[in-house]
């Protein structure tokens, strides 16, 4: 049973990142290969904020991350969003305006991903960074299943983020507009929806989800330049498995991928962990390319 608990923790981080990926995929219509770097840059901004506030203060009971980490997430989201919007303005906007093909956009994202990773190397160095040096103390939540309180808090935080995204998309005007654009951009624009504003909001929401994932991942493991790049395959696998365009599918996909990965670790195949999501992805593309909950294009 232990690997199910570990898998859910893993899945909650994948889900946050993959939902961000899904947002940009649906509205901007390309696979953003730089999403991993958004996650990593966010984690480093959060790390900076935590360091300024002072690590170790504000510890809340058994949970070791305390309010500094919670405060640092919004700070990091703002900083990373500024970077992402600047990149969109400088790179993706001109490409959209010149009617560049989808693969050109992906290519540009691939180049930006490489730049982002190495800019982190340049400014923060290549060594992994730690948010804090707490020693995790696992508690027994069920007979035979142990979890660190921080991990439980992270699962809860991810669940809150997913539910907020759901409410935002279903209950607010902005969310409805966003869904309209993802269904049919031309029709949405005819109805007076400001496409530029929607694109900016999409980047911000995608960034917010990625930064949250990156910060939480950085807290329980470590922050390093490749942290997001290594997440790219599981995130895409969750997206495709769930069915592109279906956010619930993405969460379900993340759950399957997260569990499969910890299953692989459980069976002593941790060396091939990264290939697990790829194998699942290939199998889905072969058998059911529209994904579990997706509709055929």
């Amino acid at each position: 049973m232990q690997f199910i608990a570990d898998g859910i923790l893993n899945a909650s981080l994948i889900a946050l990142g993959a939902l961000g990926l899904s947002m940009t995929y649906n509205v901007l219509r390309f696979a953003n290969f730089a999403q991993g770097e958004v996650l990593a840059i966010g984690a480093y901004f959060a790390l900076g904020a935590v360091t300024v506030i002072g690590a170790g203060v504000g510890v809340m009971g058994p949970i070791k991350f305390g309010w500094p980490l919670l405060v640092s997430i919004p700070i990091a989201i703002v900083c990373t969003s500024i970077v992402v919007l600047m990149v969109d303005y400088l790179v993706f906007r001109p490409l959209r305006n010149s009617n560049a093909s989808r693969i050109t956009l992906i290519m540009a994202a691939f180049g930006l991903s490489l730049m982002g990773r190495n800019l982190i190397h340049l400014f923060a160095g290549g060594d992994p960074k730690y948010f804090s040096f707490y020693i995790p103390k696992a508690i027994e939540i069920m007979p035979g299943v142990k979890m660190v309180p921080d991990d439980l808090a992270i699962i809860a935080l991810s669940a809150i983020a997913v539910v907020s995204l759901h409410l935002f998309l279903k209950r607010t005007n902005m969310g409805r507009m966003m869904r309209a654009v993802s269904e049919n951009p031309t029709l949405a624009r005819i109805n007076g929806i400001d496409l530029k504003m929607i694109i900016r909001m999409t980047w911000i929401i995608g960034t917010a989800l990625a930064v949250t994932a990156g910060t939480l991942q950085g807290h329980i493991f470590q922050a390093k330049a490749e942290m997001g790049f290594d997440m790219l395959l599981p995130m895409f696998a969750a997206l495709i498995l769930g069915g592109v365009g279906n956010l619930y599918g993405t969460v379900l996909g993340a759950l399957v991928i997260g569990l499969a990965e910890s299953f692989a670790v459980y069976f002593d195949l941790s060396a091939y962990r990264a290939a697990v999501s790829f194998m699942i992805m290939l199998a889905v593309l072969l058998v059911r390319p529209q994904g579990l909950l997706g509709e055929r294009e």
Partner: peptide
């Protein structure tokens, strides 16, 4: 497996194969 699908899937799958071969 991938060439029947949209170009994004080919990009993601070939990325995956490179990662797997590396592993």
């Amino acid at each position: 497996i991938t060439l029947r699908l949209r170009e994004d899937f080919l990009a993601i799958s070939t990325f995956g194969i490179a990662v797997s071969i590396q592993l």
